[in-house]
Design a protein around this nucleic acid. Structure first.
Lengths: 175, 175
DNA sequence: ACAGAAAATGCAATAGTATAACAGTGTCGC
DNA sequence: GCGACACTGTTATACTATTGCATTTTCTGT
């Protein structure tokens, strides 16, 4: 998984969104699928049936799904129940293409809102509703990288996951 | 797990160390155990036999260990083989006391070098030798937190794990 | 169109990680 | 001592992920 690619000091601030922000999710989903199609065509890799279906399942919401959740959904949609390797292989492909991220702290998978740029994603995970959003804060990553280098450590990949409350759950909690 | 506690803008730079830096690990280990004893006494919680043994096993090196690795070690040291819940319960206690961290990206556990301060640890994980060290870079965390807040997200806990090469493996790779 | 190579999928078994539920034992304050 | 509580033992099971091999599909060059 390449990481580098000229990230300058740009500190873009948000990206991705929580489910409960009132957006039209059908559009959100179809846009994600279209981008995936385009990207795969461009890269000369195959977004097969299974892979598309898995991606679609993941994008059915903004909440990370476990591999076996995906498996169960597939079992309903298609007649027969696929085996675990089927799903894991599709997930592997989707991760390689930057279309989904694995959420380490949840053993789950979520769609990436900006697969075009090879980026290093930071996730915001709501402990109440389970939704997730992606953050892009290059400045912080660079600071971490510099600190690591000061210790002689060469960073190759980042896992940054922040758990807490999303805007709507925070509002609810205060009510 | 409380997190807050006045972290001001202090950006301490290192903490914890890799195994291959030539330190005397026996001292390192016994110091960790003494600190744990002291801390538990002070807090009025019980560092029982099992808990101490698990902690000792974890501190036998600077490489994160899986729960079943710990289990296997315990099986050798004590006559009988404990069951998984025994180890998981000890790990739960040790995490609550801040004596060990769970490494999400490895499903493993590692001793915390500064359990006295309730801190938010950032881990450096060497993909070659498996060793880990802890980093403390409050500045980066604060930047992340501010970005998250700008999206209306309230951060409660951080998972920051950087994978790459530790100083000695980096040197070796270049040789 | 066809053979051969490569990629993708199907399938069975198994490895690795973690928890639930309940019974028994030890510890502490009274 | 006795009751309350924390800790540990034990069994079973849930959840997550991979290995290895057979089969099918797709692609490439001719």
């Amino acid at each position: 998984m390449g990481q580098g690619e000229s990230h300058a000091g740009s500190a873009k601030k948000g990206c991705g969104r929580f489910g409960a922000d009132g957006h039209n999710h059908a559009d959100c989903l179809s846009a994600a699928l279209e981008r995936a199609e385009a990207l795969c065509r461009e890269r000369g890799v195959r977004l097969t049936d299974i892979r598309r279906t898995v991606l679609e399942t993941i994008w059915s919401g903004h909440r990370p799904l476990g591999a076996y959740d995906i498996l169960a959904t597939l079992a309903q949609e298609r007649g027969v129940k696929p085996q675990p390797p089927t799903v894991y292989r599709a997930l592997e492909f989707l991760q390689e293409q930057g279309l989904v991220h694995r959420v380490e702290s949840l053993n789950a998978y979520i769609g990436c809102p900006l697969p075009e740029e090879r980026h290093r994603g930071q996730l915001l995970l709501c402990r109440a509703c389970g939704d997730a959003a992606e953050l892009v804060e290059e400045g912080a990553l660079e600071a971490l990288e510099r600190s690591a280098e000061a210790l002689g450590f060469k960073v190759e990949s980042f896992t940054v996951e922040l758990s807490g409350l999303c805007p709507s759950c925070l509002a609810e909690e205060r009510a």
